[in-house]
Design a protein around this nucleic acid. Structure first.
Ligand code: FES
Ligand code: FES
Lengths: 157, 157
DNA sequence: TCAGTATACGACCAATTATGTCGTGGTTTC
DNA sequence: GAAACCACGACATAATTGGTCGTATACTGA
């Protein structure tokens, strides 16, 4: 249904947190999990994946934890999502992978592949830094100055 | 994992098919399903939803079936996906709906909501007609890397 | 060196969702 | 009336996701 997994969400949250605390040498998974009410072990696994992908740097032992391996500006949402959820594709059957069983059929694949590229592009254009710069929860969902897109709630649907 | 459901895919395929056969007064679900190897009853249900959404017009009886209720140019991929899969949102918890349990936490929600809007915009800019006009490359999946998106310019940022 | 804290990783179960089927009934055409 | 269709809801099944557990490993500090 075209939605992000929670793991990816958790990963983004954690990275954002790290980006907001550049002073701290390392933040433990448990610490972040505790702050946000995320299942600690699950978050741990997510962060481990990000570490393996080279986005994070880990440090065991007391006062250990994770820290950004790159500048927050260099890490894109795409990389995060990609390394957690694996390559995402709009269409079930990707070009490079297993072709559709409905082979001669699915003629919508190619156009959608382009949509896929667009989405990936958008995600790539967003850095962790961008997330961190977002204004801390303004009580109201004002967002008046957004300009670009109106986050308008669709209301009832 | 940010991918389209098969139902939505089926719906798109069927609509494309209809757009390609403007002469035929009506095409039965079974007909389309047969052509593409899609489970007939499942496709039927999908088409029924599209009918209820006003995108299709149905006609019972012999030689009955479905036909586009609007011009292929007026129907966007977004509408199709939306009416089949319901409103899609990148984030698990949407603003208008049930708020995250991690309430004070999920600070990535708002920025991602904007990504969501962008994606929706891309989808809205693609019409069934666009899909139907695509040239059927039966060609090799040779990783051509089609470069940029050139459907309907909308998402330039 | 020893205990405490933390990551690393794989296996496993539980919850949700997506996919597909069945059955029943209603419409239109012939 | 029969055949070919749509309409709809209730299932059953498969696939993903979400989350837990157990254990091994690495680092710190007393
Ligand atoms: S079913 Fe394969 S891309 Fe649509
Ligand atoms: S967990 Fe609610 S939007 Fe991220």
């Amino acid at each position: 249904m075209l939605k992000l997994t929670k793991k990816a969400d958790y990963g983004l949250i954690a990275l954002k947190y790290l980006a907001e605390h550049p002073e701290t040498p390392a933040v433990s998974a448990k610490d972040v999990a505790d702050t946000y009410g995320i299942p600690p072990q699950l978050l741990a696994k997510v962060l481990q994946r990000l570490t393996k992908s080279g986005l994070l740097r880990s440090h065991a032992g007391m006062n250990g934890g994770y820290s950004l391996a790159q500048d927050a500006r260099q890490i894109s949402a795409y990389e995060v999502i990609h390394s957690i959820d694996g390559p995402f594709f709009i269409t079930s059957c990707v070009k490079g992978a297993k072709p559709c069983e409905l082979t001669p059929s699915c003629t919508v694949r190619e156009p959608l592949a382009r949509v896929n590229e667009t989405i990936a592009g958008v995600l790539k254009s967003i850095s962790i830094q961008d997330l961190a710069e977002q204004e801390p929860h303004t009580a109201a969902h004002g967002g008046d100055a957004q300009g670009l897109v109106s986050l308008s709630a669709h209301g009832t649907e």
